[in-house]
Design a protein around this nucleic acid. Sequence first.
DNA 1: GTACTAATTGTACGATCGTACAACTAAGGC
DNA 2: GCCTTAGTTGTACGATCGTACAATTAGTAC
Lengths: 193, 193
Amino acid sequence: MTAVSGEMADEQGVTDGRKLRGQRRRTQIIEATLAVVRRDGAAGVTHRTVAKEAGITTSLTLYYFATLDDLLVAALTSVTDAYTRRIRELIDADADPVSGLADLIAESAGSGRERALAERELSTLAARRPALRPTARRWRENVADLARTQTSSREAADAFVALSDGLCAAILLDDDPKPDPHHISAILRAALG
Amino acid sequence: MTAVSGEMADEQGVTDGRKLRGQRRRTQIIEATLAVVRRDGAAGVTHRTVAKEAGITTSLTLYYFATLDDLLVAALTSVTDAYTRRIRELIDADADPVSGLADLIAESAGSGRERALAERELSTLAARRPALRPTARRWRENVADLARTQTSSREAADAFVALSDGLCAAILLDDDPKPDPHHISAILRAALG
DNA sequence: GTACTAATTGTACGATCGTACAACTAAGGC
DNA sequence: GCCTTAGTTGTACGATCGTACAATTAGTAC
């Protein structure tokens, strides 16, 4: 009747080709949602705008995501997953993860601006919508994980997370088209003590 | 015909009692707007919701604020003015301004949660709406002013501003009903070097 | 091939949206 | 008293909103 709201589909084999197509459709809708958020903000997310972005019918987005909240949760989960992967790459790589994070933050001024804006709007939304909060917290926890590879101080880790968040916010409000990654990493490193 | 969009009314005497009443109406509408933002978020701001909150006609809010952006700018300006006053009190008082700011941030978990949420949502909105950005920057500049009374390092001041922003965001996403002001001020002080 | 299930569509409802506009009231200037 | 200006109201238009639902198509299982 209705589409599976959870995930559960990747476990074991999905023999039914229809369900497989359904999963593809699902991620396609999430992608479209993120495109809308990036372009028009979280307030622009609508069953209709998402459907138009994806090139499908409004009814179809409703078939996969019964409510707007479901859609937003799925979108935030998607960007959080992507962010988790990037942070983990930084941690696992041999290079300095702090510099890597500084580069990631500095990106928010240029090519990554829309992405950073989308993440920020969804996180802000999470403060008000309980359904989004666990995922928003997981987003921050990634940075905390990275910080803990550099320090054992709880206080320093807290500061590190807050800094990377606040620095990104500052960049999004400034006009500076090219913030200095060294300046950012210097601030981050100072917080690690 | 249309209401004055600027301020200009407090300079010299406003002899016209009608204009005086108009100014009162104006601030009343702004108050109502902020009440809506606190309760339902910036997305809930509508000519109609604001009018209902203020107990007046929808047409009247439109008479004073022709567009929704005008309304949001006025609202953000109002909270920024209030914030500026509070920060200046902290600076001018004899007590330690850093502890004062830490208390202010810690408040975001309890009684000040709605206020902090409103400020945050409007600031986030500013990243996308140019009309809001100067005011949003002024908001952050207040904290920078406070920081500059404690350090001469540009880097430390930048970190201080980003920290107070990021710490507030963390509190809004956490469930902790009573964050420790000492912990916050310790982190802030560490950033000052 | 037949029964079942998933995917997809079209259409429709009531509510709310931003905005416009003409009319009306009331207060000030002279 | 009279003219002007500011404040205020009611009503209305077209657009868009979230959501529901019956009907249809397409793929799977047996």
